[in-house]
Design a protein around this nucleic acid. Structure first.
Length: 193
DNA sequence: CCCTGATTCGC
DNA sequence: GCGAATCAGG
C-alpha cells in the first residue's frame, strides 16, 4: 500500500479529529499504526489540538547498540518546550506553529483522572454535561465504530443526537460516557445509601 | 496486558 | 519516503 492522495487525506482528517493512529491504520487498511505515525511525522502534523494525551517530549540516550565509532555532530535538536496545552482554558503562551488546519477540538481528552472506584460524582456529571455541550451531534447514520454512541436528548423530539466523540478503546462510548455508564455496583450502593 | 504516540534507522 | 522495531508512558 502506498500513500495516495486519498489515503493521506483520510489520514489528515482522522488525525485532526483526534483519532488514534491505530484507529486510522485500521480504517485505511494495509498499514500499521507505526506507518500512520511515521507518516504523520513526515507530514509535520505531529501534534493536534487537545493533545492525544501524550505530550511529545521524550529523550532517549542511545538505547540500541552503538557500535559504529562515528563522530556524530548531533543534529538532533528539539528545543521547543511543551507545556500541557489546554484547549479551552488557559490562554496560549506558546507561538503555536500550526496556523493552517484547525478543525474541531476533541473535548474529552484533558479530563482529570478517573478513580476506578468512582461513584457518580458531581464532577463526573459535570464532565458529562461538558461533553454533551461539545458533542459532535451525530445522527444515527453517522455513527461509526469509533464514535461515542451515547444518546443525548429525547429520541421523540428533534433534540436528539449522539455524542460522536472518539471512543477510547473498543468501548461504545467516549471516555467520559464510559465512566458514566459503567458504575461499579459498590459505588452505586454507597451513593444510594 | 491493553493501549497511546515518538523516535530511530535500515531499506 | 517508508515503516518495523523500539522506546516511553498511561
Amino acid at each position: 500500500m502506498s500513500w495516495t492522495e486519498e489515503r493521506v487525506e483520510t489520514l489528515k482528517k482522522m488525525w485532526g479529529e483526534g483519532q488514534s493512529a491505530s484507529q486510522i491504520a485500521k480504517e485505511l487498511g494495509g498499514v500499521t499504526r507505526n506507518a500512520v505515525i511515521g507518516k504523520v511525522h513526515r507530514l509535520g502534523l505531529s501534534n493536534r489540538s487537545g493533545g492525544g494525551g501524550k505530550p511529545a517530549a521524550k529523550e532517549k540516550a542511545a538505547p540500541k547498540a552503538e557500535a559504529a565509532p562515528k563522530a556524530k555532530p548531533a543534529p538532533k535538536a528539539k528545543p521547543a518546550p511543551k507545556p500541557a496545552a489546554e484547549p479551552a482554558k488557559a490562554a496560549e503562551t506558546i507561538p503555536a506553529p500550526i496556523p493552517a488546519r484547525k478543525a474541531i477540538i476533541p473535548a474529552g481528552q484533558p479530563l482529570p483522572p478517573q478513580p476506578s472506584a468512582n461513584e457518580i460524582s458531581p464532577e463526573t456529571l459535570a464532565s458529562a454535561r461538558e461533553v454533551e455541550k461539545s458533542a459532535k451531534k451525530l445522527s444515527l447514520m453517522e455513527l461509526t465504530e469509533r464514535t461515542c454512541k451515547w444518546p443525548i436528548g429525547d429520541p421523540a423530539t428533534e433534540e436528539f443526537w449522539f455524542c460522536g466523540l472518539p471512543v477510547q478503546s473498543g468501548k461504545p462510548y467516549c471516555e467520559v460516557h464510559v465512566s458514566v455508564a459503567f458504575q461499579p455496583m459498590s459505588a452505586r450502593r454507597d451513593r444510594k445509601r
